[in-house]
């Protein structure tokens, strides 16, 4: 960081050329421009969120009747914390607290399991030679392109009734997957998430792991290390930033998922996650829709904590340091 800014100053001096006062100042302004642009984007990006945050503390009629920015000039009128009270106190679809618990029960396994499988699979695709490796990798990754919506019903059928095929004419039934009776459970949801996450996880991790320096592995092999040791001792520690990045996304996606959860769980309200519970608060025809803004913030609180907790793993030098050492 410091080296970069130092060098840029040097470049500025050089490029400033004749170095007249105005020219220098202009050049400095232009040099600083990217930073201004950055903060401009940051402000732009936060406007929608700030707006909804303000609105989440306003009454339904105030939200509907006036812009959120007018809330600051109108005194205390229109302000309320009832939206949060109502959301947190709701009980109709199993309650928000129960929903949040279910969200954890879905998001945690749906994050940890794909990471564990995908990290090893990515290592295998990158550094273990086996027959048909390339083919298998292409098939795996092209599964990324499957639209989620097409797979929902077949998966649901599998979860509720297993997979069977009655051979025409013979009347015999083959069972590929037994009746597990998983539909309506949290398990069905995170299993689905795991399935959908694997292609992307393998794709992302493979890109990173295959880019690790070759000599690290070669020297380890010469020392007689097994694949498992290399994976455990070398690959995992070196991949921390990308694992953290994937963990953040996967947690977010599963935490905020609505469609899969609702389809797989359906009428079993004890197992519904917070997204479905909160969306349900609004009711038919957008009735009580003003609760959704407060709901959105309650919902996004946990992912933000996860983001802040994992962000510190994006640090420079993990890779460089270990290569040197």
């Amino acid at each position: 960081m410091t080296t970069l800014t130092k060098s840029s100053k040097g470049a500025a001096l050089k490029a400033g050329g004749e170095g007249s006062g105005l020219g220098m100042r202009m050049y400095r302004f232009l040099k600083a421009l990217p930073t201004w642009v950055l903060w401009g984007i940051v402000i732009l990006w936060s406007v929608p969120t700030v707006g909804i945050f303000v609105n989440s503390f306003r009454t339904a009629d105030a939200q509907r009747g006036t812009g959120w920015w007018t809330a600051f000039t109108g005194g205390t009128e229109g302000w309320t914390i009832n939206n949060y009270v109502d959301v947190l106190g709701a009980e109709a679809t199993g309650g928000v607290w129960n929903g949040l618990l279910n969200s954890f029960a879905i998001a945690i396994p749906a994050t940890v399991i794909p990471i564990a499988i995908a990290a090893f699979a990515a290592y295998a695709f990158a550094w273990i030679d086996f027959k048909g490796r390339e083919w298998l990798f292409i098939v795996t990754v092209s599964l990324l392109a499957i639209p989620l919506q097409t797979a929902l019903i077949p998966l649901l059928q599998m979860f509720s009734g297993g997979a069977h095929w009655t051979i025409p004419g013979l009347g015999a039934t083959l069972t590929f997957i037994p009746d597990l009776d998983l539909s309506g459970t949290v398990t069905a949801v995170w299993l689905t998430h795991t399935g959908f996450a694997l292609p992307f996880a393998i794709f992302l991790l493979h890109n990173y792991i295959s880019g690790l320096p070759k000599d690290v592995f070669e020297s380890a092999f010469i020392d007689g290390a097994s694949h498992f040791t290399i994976f455990w001792r070398l690959v995992l520690p070196l991949s921390v930033p990308v694992l953290a990045a994937f963990a953040i996304f996967q947690f977010l996606w599963t935490w905020n998922d609505y469609l899969i959860a609702l389809t797989m769980i359906g009428g079993n309200r004890e197992a519904l996650p917070a997204t479905v519970v909160i969306a349900s608060l609004a009711g038919e025809f957008g009735l009580r829709e003003h609760l959704l803004s407060a709901g959105a913030f309650i919902q996004s609180f946990v992912p933000l904590v996860v983001f802040f907790a994992l962000q510190r793993y994006f640090v420079r030098g993990i890779l460089a340091g270990s290569v040197k050492g």
Binding site: T49, N256, A296
Partner: peptide
């Protein structure tokens, strides 16, 4: 750095139901 990145990241943390409401008000 982390402040800027967190704010850009924030929309990802908001569910689609929330995002739809947010942009309706926009």
């Amino acid at each position: 750095e982390s402040v800027a990145k967190s704010i850009i990241f924030l929309p990802m943390a908001i569910s689609f139901v929330g995002a739809a409401i947010i942009w309706r008000f926009m």
